[in-house]
Nucleic acid binder design. Structure first.
Lengths: 210, 210
DNA sequence: AACTGTGAAGGGCTTCACAGCG
DNA sequence: CGCTGTGAAGCCCTTCACAGTT
């Protein structure tokens, strides 16, 4: 039963399920039940079935799911059957580390370019990824068909950065700067806020623990 | 009205509120209403009031909240009125970038030590932070009073790493490895999974966007 | 017999709406 | 009058439980 609106949380879990299936496939397992999968990876079996049911009927009653078939389905559903080009804005420590991280991670995401406003960095390379002037973002993004922009600039420059991204029509943004960004509605923005995460852990240390 | 159980999401937002208050304080604003704050930072005013009400009555009816007083309250609630010592395990690109990131970020979190199992790295320094043998984790963690452990090792080593952390009694862990970790109940684990985040963005690119 | 797909129940978080207070 | 603090409503997500299918 194809559903029109799939929740954000479901899409996150699809990615987790895919990872589980990769493990199972690597272990040579052919078939898996939602219950077995849930037990092994600490999930809820009803939720797995419900999440998958958003996209079709992939299971076989009395049997379970075929590992490799379901894997293929998830890859297609998540749009991982083709390469995605990523641009990282901010070629400081974090930006370059992320560039490196995504390169190693064998995935369908490839960092095509880095951007910065520091003249000393522009023109240099990180591995084989060139650092461009942020002023040329639109042109390079178009040339390299960048679909995902990663913000790794200081907090104070993040809002201006997402506005530059916005103008180019890129619709997927991952933000690492510790600020709440405002962007137009067509942009899908995911923020990784380490300050917030740490402070929330601090609350736990101060209150919950023990 | 003090509540016994505060939701995870509330604690995350407290951190965001604190950031807002810092901005307002820096701008010299003395007082702010939940409505004005919500508008400015894209939040919901009722939620702000409700979140704060978990910890006391900080507002003044007809007036709003005193910026600096509320700021002090949040700092205390979040346990940010003292320094926290952080240990980063994995001195690769990501681990060292994070070490650098946390150093710059002027906060109450200070990276006390890095850990690795690579003999070539052990003994070296990143800035003024020494890289220790992971075998000495318990001893160094105790010596430096490490309260928060950050996992920045390859996926395959993450589970073993959290087990090492677990044994020392550290109860706050931030994980950057792209795996779902199992830990004993007393550990508060926050995972930042870039693979999951990117794949979820990929779903959006493949389906939602226009 | 085993396991999926799903209606219904349950639980939690967010938002509304307003009483109450300054 | 303005704004907080909060009961109630609404919404969404998760979990249960089982009918249906192979």
């Amino acid at each position: 039963m194809k559903s029109d609106k799939v929740s954000e949380q479901t899409t996150k879990r699809l990615s987790i399920y895919l990872r589980c299936l990769n493990e199972l496939a690597a272990a040579g397992q052919v078939s898996v039940s939602s219950e077995a999968c849930a037990k092994r990876f600490g999930l809820n079996s009803a939720q797995i079935r419900k999440d998958l049911a958003n996209f079709g009927e992939f299971g076989h009653r009395g049997v379970g799911y075929n590992v490799s078939a379901l894997r293929e389905h998830l890859i297609r559903i998540l749009g991982l059957d083709r390469q995605h080009s990523v641009g990282i804005i901010g070629a400081g420590r974090l930006g370059t580390a992320l560039a490196d991280y995504y390169r190693v991670l064998d995935s369908n995401f490839a960092v095509a370019a880095l951007f910065d406003n520091d003249k000393d960095k522009i023109g240099k390379k990180v591995g084989d990824i060139e650092i461009f002037d942020i002023k040329n973002f639109a042109a390079v993004a178009k040339r390299d068909n960048i679909e995902v922009a990663v913000i790794a600039v200081p907090a104070g420059e993040a809002q201006a950065t997402i506005e530059i991204i916005d103008k180019t029509g890129i619709s997927a943004v991952m933000n690492f700067a510790p600020v709440r960004l405002r962007a137009s509605a067509h942009i899908k923005l995911k923020s990784v806020d380490m300050t917030t995460t740490l402070e929330s852990l601090s609350y736990f240390l101060a209150n919950d623990s023990q």
